[in-house]
Design a protein around this nucleic acid. Structure first.
Lengths: 345, 345
DNA sequence: ATGAAAGCGCTAACAG
DNA sequence: CTGTTAGCGCTTTCAT
């Protein structure tokens, strides 16, 4: 008949013939405890299978050893890959991870309010979420270490931020197509106003426009399409764009996911890639390699890892100078891009 | 100069001119409180921006409103999709999620010991992790509600379990190939003894063998290959297998990921799919659709959701009869399989 | 080096 | 219906 109550620090104290305070000190590695008694205590701890009660510890110390992670977890492969990096480092540091998945606009509100409370977690990592003005205020008031990865807000310059220069990336991608001789270059992206507020698509589009303008190529509305994010939508958008009389000879998609939709559209219309149509994506998710998609590479997992590192650092040392870092992006040429050919005209 | 201490229940009590106990009752929706005072309290709560301290609440009630999730999070797309379902339901029920990612064997040990403690979470969901005998003992002793999804252990029959009949799935896949006239059917799978202990590959292989034997087709070692899980490894395995003099005319891969490797190998060797080689995968991850891969479908997200549902139910009502359910699997024919042709001989 | 005692913020049992 | 009180399990002064 074993008692169902779990063993607590007083049980250990009693068995080791010391006080609870001493057990606590012994366990926390305080130097103020005799080596013999420490040994004895450890022995008892082991024998009884004691482990401290996390909530009690947290209540007493005010530290949670948990960090909060706010992200649209499963909406996009690029997010998943960033998460991967974040989680791996967290695990290594024995931090609990309290996750808040944001998939709908309503969850946004709740998520921010709920997690940005000192008592729940020691710090918060926000990943790929557009930050609204009111959220920014909340974050500012919270006095909780927060780091931003793949997102930013003008009112939060005092935070650690890891951002991606999507404008530059969009420019590089487009310049590459121009360099290949393309001038009829389409863009397939998200709705500029999308419910979750990803802004990457918009920024990539800005880069696209910049590159065209700089090259003296007019930005034509019939070569620009926005739609809901996702492969099937992109496929539709692309099919429409490619069915025009003077169809584009190249398409820059705001994400690899969408680029895959474009590839499907090309197949639908019996257009050969890259002979008839060049396609370039963004993110370099694993699929890009499989499909031999030319794309803009960014080190997704590394960005997550770095974000966690920054967060843990600033939890340990709140006075640390905040870091603002623009993560590098790089063109990876594979098999979906080629020089414009007369045939494709 | 705002005080940095957060407001607690006594501050609220004072401002509302009631006792802390009453505030607690008002907040928990107890009927034993006057509507007027409740209104007054709510007002103060709002004005002060009060929210209860989670650790204190947990310590006091013994409930954590968190569940633990043990899974090899990012190792396989199929796991990610199951997680997706699990997380979505958890969020809906306002449960915190304490995740334990297991990527290496060492993490296995720590993960199980650490999380299966009553004080940390109210229940545990174990996803796609092979359970060792010693883990099973731990789980049994823990008195904590635990549900198993895509995994099982003989000593844990008293638990809620959602399993996949991979043997049957392997049989169905292989029978389909036999039905198409193939007799030289290869199998590409994981090492039977792999560090994280996934067993699905092994079971799928059993089904494969069963189907062959039943059809009177000999199981030939040169058509069987095990290797590390992953696309590049499968590619190598397949390349080797397909370079033999009497190469297989069809390959059943233990996962879609590996099937993709097989497709790459076919491309490497200039074999046309499905004309020269039929390929069938397992899981029906999103990629399978993109690549038009014939595969064994299972509703991955749904299994995660169901697992959480079971867990929440048995937290709410521990006396509930445990459920054992075999999740359905279904063949999805796409474009990578075809009848064996003379050409392919 | 160790014990005693106070307190972290909350809930729940008991009185009234 | 509400106030008071006694914990939940741990850490951390403050003595000694």
């Amino acid at each position: 008949m074993r008692s169902s109550k779990t063993v607590n620090i007083r049980d250990v104290a009693r068995a080791a013939r010391v006080s609870a305070g001493t057990v606590s000190r012994a366990l926390s590695g305080s130097p103020l405890v005799n080596e013999e008694t420490r040994a004895k205590i450890m022995e008892v701890v082991k024998a009884l299978g004691y482990a401290p009660h996390p909530s009690a510890q947290r209540l007493s110390t005010g530290k949670t050893f948990a960090i909060g992670l706010i992200a649209p977890f499963f909406t996009r492969p690029s997010v998943t890959e960033r998460l991967n990096g974040a989680v791996s480092l967290l695990v290594k540091n024995h931090y609990d991870l309290v996750i808040h998945d944001i998939e709908t606009p309503e969850q946004r509100q709740a998520g921010f309010l709920d997690i940005i409370r000192r008592e729940r977690v020691d710090g918060v990592l926000i990943l790929s979420m557009r930050i609204h003005d009111q959220d920014a205020q909340l974050i500012k008031d919270s006095e909780l270490p927060v780091v931003l990865v793949d997102t930013d807000h003008p009112a939060l310059a005092q935070l650690n931020r890891l951002v991606v220069d999507d404008v530059a990336g969009g420019r590089v991608a487009t310049e590459y197509l121009l360099q290949l001789g393309h001038t009829r270059i389409g863009f397939i992206g998200d709705y500029v106003e999308n419910p979750l507020g990803f802004v990457s698509s918009r920024n990539r589009r800005s880069g696209y426009c910049q590159a065209l303008e700089q090259a003296g190529v007019p930005v034509r509305p019939e070569y620009y399409s926005e739609g809901e994010h996702g492969r099937p939508f992109a496929r539709l958008q692309a099919r429409q764009m490619l069915s025009q009389p003077m169809r584009p000879t190249a398409i820059f998609a705001a994400s690899d996911t969408q680029a895959i939709g474009v590839l499907e559209a090309a197949r639908d219309l019996a257009l050969r890639v890259p002979d008839d149509l060049s396609v370039i994506g963004y993110d370099d998710i694993e699929f890009a390699d499989i499909l031999q998609l030319t794309t803009m590479h960014q080190n997704l997992a590394e960005s997550g890892r770095l974000g966690v590192q920054l967060l843990l650092d600033s939890i340990a040392n709140p006075q640390l100078q905040p870091i603002y870092r623009v993560l590098p992006t790089e063109l990876v040429v594979r098999r979906t891009t080629a020089p414009v050919s007369d045939l494709s005209q």
